[in-house]
Design a protein around this nucleic acid. Structure first.
Length: 541
RNA sequence: GCUCCCGUAGCUCAACCGGAUAGAGCAACAGUCUUCUAAACUGUAGGUUACAGGUUCGAGUCCUGUCGGGAGUACCA
């Protein structure tokens, strides 16, 4: 309907000799303002030097619209043109949904294109925390949206298993190991105090009982890393998340990619040496200060590998590159992107999604988190307490740019007034009605007479239902996926209202069948939407 | 100091490229189950969209400034 109107309106504007800018259509909030509305007359007021209402009339007088699609239109002050869709059109759309079934809501905007989503990327120093949860769900849901838009998607996890942090980790494991062996050893200063290292030490002791203080640290480091990665991957699996690629920063060194980037920047005259360190001349590119690429110790900062990594992303041929970062990484990407641009890559392909922090609350108290001190609630613990469906939904229901308060007490307590259950209940309710219909011998009929559907609540439900593909596209355009849970909530509300007002199964068999047909379509949209969110759609509750 | 994010009902948050009377949930109050699942529905109340200017037919949305919260501003990542 939208594209139909767009097309005809554009043609008409051309006839009139007015600038054919992209006409904007929106679904009015109020049903009385039609099913689709455009503000084109107001937008043209200045250029055409006429009153918006006059323009609207001029446009509409010469516009011939198919009555099977558009029932009627109205011109309303200050200059809106509102269109009302015809019943035939609605019926036709409903049939389409049922035919598309598992494909309802998909679009082809990314067909033939490759996308990469990098998310989580936590270094293997400890289990994933509640803080990582937000990024996990955000990244995975964005990836789902891309898949529903036709992209071929690679989910990627970037990690670093070298450096000071990992050394500390190895030392911490060694201390735990030796303590288990009866040689009580203190954890190093700033060591990792988490209980998980004790578990990993026990495993190590079973497998290799002969290690000692003399053993190379790398043995402990390697074992700690493997053990922790197992924990992380298990957690991700519980969340329903599978990464296709785990990219080790170290390979960038081994294959000389780091040097290549440095050389390339040198050739562009953007590198200089000062105080024994190697600097990136970012001031030359419009930044307020220069940045260190290689420390005086000879060790590169995160910046250089990040540049090399992103250069690899481009070379691997991705058409769309999405980085999901926490707010603490805010300053790390502008100069990385600047370097890539200098190297000749099209950085408009890179989209950085920054999410604000999660504040973990216990009632009114803020829970402070630190991986090293093991003062945190792990994602696993959260999953144990409230389940995957609730965790995924809670993390995604708010915009990434908003700070998220995650109240543990509330999440645990929430079993009844929880929005997730509200959605799932809508789905289960429909399933239940279908079971009941079968009992009563009323069968679902593909050829049901849909002209029987016409009450206000019914039309509201159908309109909500038809918006689903638009919501998916909007999530894609904006990379703001919280629109989806919000939409599904509204769809569930429309369903519940319809249910309260109108009995589906009645003596009137044709009407029952028409309503069953509608519910079938609603069930499809709910199920597909929940699938994108990674939330289950139960048949009964 | 500078950069980025945020500020909307008592609380948690929506509001598509600037559109029509700023919407939900929770909490409060009042109702609705002999009938397909009441994990639901209806109604009442709750707002100077932090503040002050500006841009225009129209601003929660864009611009400038102020205040408040968060993140960054390292030879940490």
């Amino acid at each position: 309907m939208k594209s139909y109107l767009e097309q005809h309106l554009k043609t008409r504007l051309t006839e009139l000799g007015w600038p054919v800018e992209e006409p904007q259509f929106s679904r009015p909030k109020k049903a009385e303002n039609g099913d689709w509305s455009t503000n084109i007359a107001m937008a043209l007021a200045r250029v055409a030097r006429q009153a918006p209402l006059q323009i609207a009339h001029t446009i509409m007088e010469g516009l011939i619209l198919d009555p099977e699609i558009v029932d009627r239109y109205e011109i309303v002050a200050p200059g809106f043109i509102n269109f009302f869709q015809s019943p035939d059109y609605l019926a036709h759309q409903l049939r389409k949904i049922v035919t598309q079934d598992f494909h309802y809501g998909r679009n082809k905007s990314g067909a033939g294109q490759k996308a990469q989503v990098e998310f989580v990327s936590a270094n293997p120093t400890g289990p994933l925390t509640v803080g990582h949860g937000r990024q996990t769900v955000l990244g995975d849901t964005i990836a789902n949206i891309l898949e529903w838009s036709g992209y071929e998607v690679v989910r990627e996890y970037y990690f670093n298993n070298a450096g000071r942090q990992m050394r500390k980790l190895g030392e911490s494991l060694r201390a735990r190991y030796l303590t288990l062996k009866g040689q009580s050893t203190a954890l190093p200063e700033d060591g990792y105090q988490g209980e998980y290292l004790v578990e990993i030490a026990k495993e190590l002791l079973e497998q290799q009982p002969d290690l000692s203080v003399e053993t190379e640290l790398s043995v402990f480091k390697t074992h700690a890393e493997a053990g922790i990665f197992q924990i992380i991957k298990d957690t991700l699996a519980r969340m329903g998340v599978t990464h296709d690629v785990f990219y080790n920063e170290n390979t960038l060194y081994e294959t000389g990619k780091i040097e290549e980037v440095l050389d390339e920047l040198r050739r562009k005259n953007l590198v200089f040496t000062k105080d024994g360190a190697t600097w990136f001349k970012t001031t030359e590119l419009g930044f307020d200060q220069d940045r260190v690429l290689v420390k005086s110790t000879g060790e590169p900062t995160y910046r250089l590998p990040d540049m090399a990594y992103h250069r690899e992303k481009f070379r691997r041929g991705f058409d769309l590159i999405i980085d999901v970062f926490g707010a603490d990484h805010q300053d790390t990407y502008p100069d990385v992107l600047a370097a890539l641009k200098v190297m000749g890559f099209d950085t408009s392909k890179v989209h950085v999604v920054i999410h604000q922090f999660v504040t973990l609350m216990r009632g009114d108290e803020v829970v402070k988190m630190s991986t090293r001190k093991a003062e945190f609630v792990t994602l696993d613990e959260l999953l144990d307490e409230v389940g995957v469906d609730v965790v995924r939904y809670f993390y995604i229901m708010r915009g990434a740019g908003s700070h998220l308060n995650f109240d543990l007490d509330l999440a645990k307590r929430q079993t009844e007034e929880n929005p997730v259950f509200y959605l799932q209940y809508a789905h289960a309710r429909i399933a239940s009605i279908f079971r009941k219909a079968e009992e009563r011998g009323i069968t679902y009929d593909v050829h049901a007479d849909l002209t029987r559907l016409g009450e206000a609540e019914t039309l509201a439900l159908i309109n909500e239902l038809l918006a689903f593909p638009e919501v998916v596209e909007r999530c894609l355009r904006s990379l703001e996926v919280h629109h989806l849970p919000n939409y599904l909530y509204a769809l569930a509300t429309a369903l519940h209202k319809f249910y309260t007002e109108h009995r589906v199964i009645s003596e009137d068999v044709p009407l029952s069948q028409a309503r069953l047909f509608l519910l079938k379509a609603v069930k499809i949209a709910l199920r597909n939407g929940l699938q994108i969110l990674g939330v289950t759609a139960p048949e009964r509750m």
